[in-house]
């Protein structure tokens, strides 16, 4: 199982688009676990800090930060996931 985490904040103007894209792409793969981490919660911020996330949106795959900021391309995300399958 590949774990894709998206760190987002409800106040970030770009995160909505990132959430939409990542959930759509992740949803195509049965062996991908997609987790959204809300960094406006204590648990979310602790998880982010433990991974040295410092901006939203950030995409981590299997505990490694892979994409930071918006926009990022669908093909980049697909490549990241498929390289782990």
């Amino acid at each position: 199982m590949v774990r894709v985490e998206l760190f987002f904040s409800p106040v970030c103007p770009y995160c909505h688009s990132a959430r939409k894209l990542v959930s759509e792409v992740a949803g195509r793969y049965p062996h991908v676990e997609f987790v959204e981490v809300d960094t406006y919660t204590e648990e979310g911020i602790e998880r982010g800090m433990s991974m040295r996330v410092s901006a939203v949106p950030t995409v981590a795959v299997d505990d490694e930060i892979k994409l930071v900021g918006w926009p990022f391309e669908e093909k980049d995300l697909v490549r990241l996931i498929e390289s782990r399958l």
Binding site: S9, I45, V68, G69
Partner: peptide
């Protein structure tokens, strides 16, 4: 350093700099 310490949104990314 964008996303690695450089930010353009205090309210979005501020919590990471506690």
């Amino acid at each position: 350093y964008k996303g690695r310490g450089v930010s353009y949104c205090g309210v979005c990314d501020g919590p990471f700099f506690r």
